[in-house]
Every structure is written in structure tokens, then in C-alpha cells.
């Protein structure tokens, strides 16, 4: 685990997402009813910014064409296609959102 301090919890309003920029990588962080979650920001369909989608329960709806992405599993739930995005573990500590970015590192290494 490589927890990285991201931002204050109050920076992300309830049921909204914000985009976290790490180099060229974008991660969408969401504030759900009882927790924060983080996924890759770009929709697998047409690269829509998922952080700008409307949140319903534990799903986000891409603002461009309405694909549904499950925020806990990263899987696309609508339409019925075998696609998905990467998820990242999130925890809250001392009022700060922390994300485990080790998955990101793996991706970068795969790409390298």
C-alpha cells in the first residue's frame, strides 16, 4: 500500500466527483453517502470525464453518452459490455482523503 494524501474531505461535495491530476493521469474521486471512491477518470466508451457525471447510488453516469460505471468495481453496468476502469483504494484519515496509488504505478510500469 502506498497511501498518498490527496485533499480535504470537504473539497468534494456529497454525491459529486472531482478530477485528480497526477502527471498526465486523471483519477476521478467521488464522495458517496458513506465513503469516498476513486476510479480512472476517462470513460472506456469515448473518454468522457466521469468526474463530471451524475452519481446514482454507487454508480456514475458518464456525462457524454450515459454509460454507467460502477464506482466500487469499476465495471461498466450499462450498456452490457465487458469493459471497465481501474479502481483505487481510498481512506479518510484526519479529515484528509488518501488514495492508494500503487495500481497506478503498475499501469505505468506495464506501459513502460
Amino acid at each position: 500500500m502506498a497511501w498518498t494524501k490527496i485533499t480535504k474531505t470537504e473539497d468534494i461535495p456529497l454525491r459529486e466527483g472531482r478530477c485528480l491530476e497526477i502527471g498526465r493521469k486523471e483519477i476521478a474521486v467521488f464522495h458517496l453517502r458513506d465513503k469516498f471512491v476513486a476510479i480512472d477518470n476517462r470513460c472506456p466508451h469515448d473518454q468522457g470525464p466521469l468526474c463530471d457525471g451524475i452519481v446514482k447510488g454507487t454508480t456514475v453516469v458518464c456525462p457524454l453518452h450515459g454509460w454507467n460505471v460502477n464506482l466500487e468495481t469499476g465495471k461498466v453496468s450499462k450498456p452490457d459490455v465487458p469493459a471497465g476502469v481501474r479502481t483505487y483504494p481510498v481512506r479518510v484519515k484526519d479529515g484528509l482523503i488518501e488514495i492508494d496509488l500503487s495500481a497506478l504505478t503498475e499501469v505505468e510500469e506495464e506501459a513502460a
Binding site: 491530476e21 497526477i22 493521469k25
Partner: peptide, 22 residues
């Protein structure tokens, strides 16, 4: 503006392994 509505959030600390590569 509402909190962080228009900003891309940057992490508060540099992620250990990622920073250099990006």
C-alpha cells in the same frame, strides 16, 4: 465558486513512485 468546482485537484504530496515518470 463552490469548493473545487473548477479546479483539477493536485495531490497534497508527491506520489512516491509516480512522480518521476510523469
Amino acid at each position: 465558486p463552490r469548493p473545487t468546482q473548477f479546479v483539477q485537484i493536485a495531490p497534497m504530496e508527491v506520489p512516491v513512485d509516480v512522480a518521476v515518470r510523469s
